[in-house]
């Protein structure tokens, strides 16, 4: 069963702690202070908090059923994990052509040019029971549930 992250924007307070924890999860050391102060290439978050006025919400890859990024990827770096249904990017295969970024209707793939150019996106925190953004949101403004 595919797990999906649902957004409850009415409770997002715009603190961006989800970004902080996402960044740490995708760092080498997974230590918050080292991740911020001493890692190269500098890790970047894969979740993006959008804000306008008092409305804010955290958005990450929707892991689309008919994912355009999968179609657009020229090297086959973008693939679907058979077990979880998640859309993942094989960073070894990715050449940083940004085709996926062009086609993603949600704008949730970021350019990571800190080291080798790669497309950086939500991987639903491979190996974690619950994605860290969901686990660490202090106001339960993002929740992870089986697909409705």
């Amino acid at each position: 069963m595919v797990k999906r992250i649902y957004i409850r924007e009415e409770y997002c307070m715009g603190c961006r702690l989800c970004e902080v924890h996402c960044l740490v999860q995708h760092s080498k050391t997974k230590n918050i202070i080292k991740a911020y102060k001493g890692e190269y290439p500098k890790p970047i978050p894969r979740i993006i908090v959008e804000e306008k006025g008092y409305v804010s919400f955290a958005l990450q890859c929707r892991h689309c059923e008919d994912a355009p990024c999968l179609e657009a990827c020229i090297t086959g770096a973008m693939y679907r994990d058979k077990k979880t249904g998640a859309v993942l990017c094989d960073e070894d295969k990715c050449i940083g052509c940004w085709m996926c970024i062009m086609v993603c209707p949600f704008g949730v793939i970021s350019r990571n040019i800190e080291g080798k150019k790669i497309a950086s996106k939500c991987d639903l925190c491979v190996g974690e029971e619950v994605p860290v953004c969901v686990k660490n949101c202090p106001n339960e403004a993002i929740v992870c549930e089986e697909e409705k």
């Binding site: 715009g14 961006r16 702690l17 902080v20 991740a35 102060k37």
Partner: peptide, 13 residues
């Protein structure tokens, strides 16, 4: 300062 990562969560909140 040794712990602060300048994430600005406090600034926003």
């Amino acid at each position: 300062e040794g712990k602060c990562i300048a994430c600005q969560v406090c600034v926003r909140m």
